[in-house]
Amino acid sequence: MTYLNEKINWNILFLCWLIASISAMGSLFFSSVMEFAPCVLCWYQRIFLFPLVLILAIGLFPFDKKVVKYAFPLAIVGWLTAAYHNLLYAGIIPESIKPCSKGISCTEEYINLLGFLSIPMLSLLSFSTIITLLIILYKRTSK
């Protein structure tokens, strides 16, 4: 039973790492291959996303439940930035108070999949999933 539990916990953390890695690669694909210049807010989200790839991977070998403690703050700040970015993108926060009026616009539309999946939305989804998985993992391991 404990063995099965350990296996599930490892898999949850692995999935969490996989989502972070796919997101990091996706963001690199947008900037390096498709040559979309990242705006200021995108950079902040990258700053909190990229370390997750390493920190979560370190937590996998050997499995360390403390990884939640280290990864969670990064994921939360990344999520907050992504949430703010989405509000800006959707026009709910007016242009005048956005911090990136100079340089690359944070509201320029680069991609639009299925009518709602913009780059900031992808970021928000991935941070949300990572946070959810970390919370599940925390609940399971702190019992």
């Binding site: 692995f14 890695s21 694909f29 991977a57 996998l60 070998f61």
Partner: peptide, 17 residues
Amino acid sequence: KTHITFAITVLVLILAF
């Protein structure tokens, strides 16, 4: 086994990129 899963996933991601 977990090491192999991890290594294969990393390779697949890099290849996909």
